[in-house]
Amino acid sequence: MSKADIRTETGPSPQYREWLRRERRGHLAVRAAQLAVLVIFLVLWEVLPKAHVINPLFTSYPSALWPTFLELLKDSPQQVNILAHTWATVLATVIGFTAAMVFGTAIAAALWWWDGLYKVLDPYLVVANAMPKTAFVPIFYLWLGATMSVYGMSLAISLFVTILMIYSGFQGTDPNKVKLAQTFGASKGQILTKVVLPGSVPTLIAALKVNAGLSLVGVVVGEFQSANLGLGYLIQYGSQIFKMNIVMCGITILAVVSSLMYLAISWLETAVMRRR
């Protein structure tokens, strides 16, 4: 039933119009409050250092962000512009979470297929997931070199949680749906591809949401140590030479990148869930 069906011949009643108006007002109030939080934050960030309540050396100013960005566009460390640094980070993140999804789903499927494998590996997976993966940054650098260690950290930080999430999604498949497929003589492979995988799409998207954020963390941490490209490198470089403008500019771009990734996944979720 669409909303139009409820409408009477004379159009919406005054009470309904009033209700709609209040709904809209409520919605606008939330948006206004969200904007206000951002503005207050930026104003405090601008005013407090200028008034020397806090030391500007440590915080830079929001008004300095844009000029810094323009400057970094022309010339930034390693003779590449800031867009190249941003691109390196975004690319490594996308590679990291794509690999985590692919390997995570494949490993979860293997664990689902061979229950004995799951029983054996279960404690190791839980421990691997709880380990602070960032402890491996220096080792990854030695093992994998500058570029690959960033990808490796991005994958390592998101892989185990992805496996655990997707596996529990697979386990959560309604056993009666599996039984139904069995009554038609479905093989294990058919149960996986026709029941378990399509039934776990909401879990796959939830896992994607979690590991997109984690992959970005892995990339930035990896870049701190080993890279000479990327926003993590830029932030590290800026702090070493005590140029807070560069640090804050890098962090702001990271915030923008996270928001865009969040939007892209939300859009994907809406597109996929429309069929459910």
Partner: peptide, 19 residues
């Protein structure tokens, strides 16, 4: 010997696949 085409099974609920 196993599920056969000769036999159809209707379960307690419809268990339609929502996708």
């Amino acid at each position: 010997a196993g599920p056969s085409r000769k036999v159809g099974y209707m379960l307690q609920q419809d268990y339609l696949f929502e996708w």
